[in-house]
């Protein structure tokens, strides 16, 4: 199963002798394809690669809000920040800024638990929906609903429900005779809350993706397994899971990346009521860039570190998948 998603990163080929002729020849041969991908290349080049290069440059300086170029009225003040080399990275990696490792630890916990729970629930729901059930369309629509609602609205709904004074959860449990809880009060409670909300938002995607995967598993496999006397559990382990592998590997990779970078849920659910304990790396970097005296260089360095972590993870992940498949 060599799918293109499993392609290794293409290595840059060394230019062969006669660069111009070979360029001309390949232009003649491939111009059609290149023209068709040109818009995407331009968009990515201008809006992603250039800012990335600029971000890398910023991360090597000590730029903050105070010393970047700005216009105050008619007066133009030039940039006065300096090149500081890898200082920002050293601050982060050596743990001197005191925030990186705690944030990294929580980010990893957050990502792993969110992806694992979301995948488990998504797979479970997909397997239920894959059976002949009455009202299947109704269930499917209901279960996909969290995906159809923009994330920030879902988050606001949860925030309203978690509210310690007036939230519906407290109404329910006081009716059941239990004491009120401060759902978003302690850092631990906040962490649980953001995970719950993220799972709520993420399950529909998982469910839809795995449902399609389930439907693509040929029925004959199940029949053969049944003929051989496989129990339902054995059928699940030996037919369903292997059959789902192509879908699983893709959705897990995607949702790991998305969760790792999940910005709006944490940012909006907790607003300003956090102690900073619930910040994952991305929200921490965003706050660095936009609250107080904006620390552009520090935020950029954080961004690059996050990117490197993700690239390393996905490279490793795909290589692992490939070696297992052979």
């Amino acid at each position: 199963m060599t799918t293109a998603t499993m392609d290794p990163p293409a290595r840059v080929k060394a230019p062969r002798p006669g660069l111009r002729t070979s360029l001309r020849r390949s232009w003649d041969k491939y111009w059609y394809a290149w023209v068709m991908v040109a818009p995407v290349i331009i968009v990515i080049g201008v809006l992603v690669l250039y800012p990335l290069a600029y971000g890398i440059y910023l991360s090597l300086t000590n730029a903050t809000e105070q010393n970047v170029a700005k216009d105050i009225g008619p007066v133009h003040i030039g940039a006065s920040y300096d090149f500081v080399g890898l200082h920002n990275y050293w601050q982060i990696i050596s743990g001197q800024d005191g925030d990186f490792y705690p944030r990294l630890e929580w980010t990893v916990i957050w990502t792993v638990s969110c992806v694992a729970i979301t995948y488990a629930i998504g797979l479970g729901m997909a397997m239920l929906l894959n059976r002949p059930v009455r009202f299947r369309l109704f269930y499917r629509l209901a279960l996909i609903l969290p995906w159809a609602v923009p994330a920030f609205i879902g988050v606001f709904a949860w925030r309203l429900m978690f509210n310690s004074q007036y939230g519906v959860f407290n109404d329910i449990i006081t009716h059941l005779g239990m004491p009120q809880q401060d759902w978003l009060g302690t850092p631990f409670a906040q962490k649980v809350a953001v995970i719950i909300v993220n799972v709520w938002c993420g399950v529909p995607f998982m469910m839809v993706a795995t449902l399609g995967g389930l439907q693509s598993i040929p029925n004959e496999l199940y029949e053969a397994a049944e003929m051989d006397g496989a129990t339902p559990l054995q059928r699940f382990l030996n037919v369903t899971l292997p059959g789902l592998r192509p879908v699983t590997s893709t959705v897990i990779l995607l949702s790991t990346v998305w969760t790792f970078n999940m910005f709006p849920i944490i940012f909006l659910l907790l607003g300003n009521n956090t102690t900073g304990d619930t910040d994952i790396l991305v929200t921490y970097a965003y706050e660095k860039a936009f609250t107080g005296v904006s620390d552009y260089s520090g935020a950029a360095a954080y961004g690059i570190v996050i990117l490197l972590i993700l690239v390393a993870f996905s490279t490793f992940y795909r290589r692992q998948l490939k070696s297992e498949q052979v």
Partner: peptide, 28 residues
């Protein structure tokens, strides 16, 4: 179409998903 760069383009698409807001927002 098979053309030079089509594998690295796929890889770029995947990597681009990994860009955190924080790294792009100030340069953008």
């Amino acid at each position: 179409m098979k053309f030079p760069g089509h594998k690295s383009l796929m890889w770029t698409f995947l990597i681009t998903q990994m860009f955190p807001v924080a790294v792009l927002i100030v340069p953008l």
